[in-house]
Design a binder for these strands. Structure first.
Lengths: 219, 219
DNA sequence: AGACATTCTTGATGCATATCAATTAAATCC
DNA sequence: GGATTTAATTGATATGCATCAAGAATGTCT
């Protein structure tokens, strides 16, 4: 599936003329699965627009292990704030599928900032990104492994049929062993059951309690 | 020290008239040291502007311990993205000194969004906040305790004369014991010396190496 | 269906840092 | 300037998860 500039939320409210100008300055490159778009620490003078495929953003620890941050599926802007702040990318971006990137020179984006429709869209996209990062921070610093797992079970139970446990573990930044042990524990406590990769929630309350224990209100 | 709206970066480029309109709708409240401006999970229909004093933002873990996030000193906007995204505050905000908050109804801020000067300032302020959060995420997920400590020693050595070790530890989200042990280790290795609360760096290279070990480039 | 590869599970051990507890050092107060 | 409070150090132990290692279960291929 390949997208165009107008399909990207950030550009959705631009006029035909504005889109055409942008289109003229965009150059498109194709990437194959597993290739790296950029590494943590790189810089770029282009806004990088994911027009096809899915990418994964992650940091690398001192020991070489990876901290998963986000998945982005086209159409989407990658590394939005890093582009605007002109700082180096805080994470590595790798293709999970074959994909396609549109490179738009940052100057061309700056030229749009006078357009208040564009600015408002940009503000909205930025704050949504901020929420994404803020939620990630919460998961990684406040949640225990159990809470992370309870959280996906409640909010995204279908991943258990779509992905292998090793993949789920890597997204949650825990080891497959910990995931396996915790799922066994939940099964023993009759909070969930898993049959042929289909997860059924038996005691939502108990799961929510595990998550909530990690969102203490001090009122 | 008390500030006015025009001293806040976000409003610095507004016209006299715009400022006067805002001023008319702002209501100001004074807070005493240690009081809480808002709790994690709260919502507000106002943009909260710190016009005097210093606040601290932190999350609370399941066990009741606190994860320090930021210090903000007036003049500054607190909880900027949460206001714009209309989501609940991701952290608790507490005064470290006596202070003063200006409450501005969000509608009044929205009215400014048509002004492209304002929008551009807002975009710039938002991306800077994003960098703050991104750096915090990096410190908390990638850095080891040693790296955190090496980092403050290199980038902010004066804190050791300004703050008690318990306070430094709490900002770094480590225990005073760990801080003490690590500083002793650095002293034994002749990387630093501390005399009457004044820290002297003896081997910057060695410290930087500890930090860099946590910023791997895979090129 | 049988064979090989991959993934999952389970147990043993390791590691970084927190927690608990006691002692020592430093700061503050009358 | 000694007494008292507060902070820093040091050692022993606990904890939550990762790592290592093997075996069991499941998936894939011809």
């Amino acid at each position: 599936m390949e997208f165009e500039l107008k399909d990207v939320t950030l550009f959705s409210r631009l006029s035909k003329e504005q889109l055409e100008t942008l289109q003229f300055h965009v150059h498109v490159r194709h990437y194959s699965k597993d290739s790296v778009l950029f590494y943590e620490g790189d810089k770029s003078a282009y806004l990088q627009i994911l027009l096809g495929g899915t990418v994964r953003l992650y940091k690398t620890t001192a020991k070489g292990s990876q901290i998963h941050m986000h998945h982005f599926t086209a159409p989407e802007i990658v590394a939005l704030y890093a582009a605007f702040e002109k700082v180096s990318f805080p994470a590595t971006c790798e293709f999970l599928t074959d994909g396609m990137i549109g490179f738009l020179p940052l100057e061309k984006v700056y030229e749009l900032l006078g357009d208040s429709d564009f600015s408002m869209t940009l503000i909205s996209v930025l704050t949504k990104r901020m929420k994404l990062l803020s939620d990630l921070f919460h998961r990684e610093t406040i949640y225990t492994s159990e809470a992370k797992i309870a959280d996906v079970i409640c909010n995204n139970p279908t991943v258990f049929s779509r992905l292998k446990n090793t993949e789920i573990a890597s997204i949650l930044n825990i080891t497959p062993e910990t995931l396996s042990r915790t799922l066994t524990k939940f099964k023993n406590k009759k909070m969930i059951s898993i049959d042929h990769h289909v997860l059924t929630i038996l005691q939502k309350d108990a799961l929510i309690e595990i998550i909530e224990a990690n969102i203490i209100s001090k009122h």
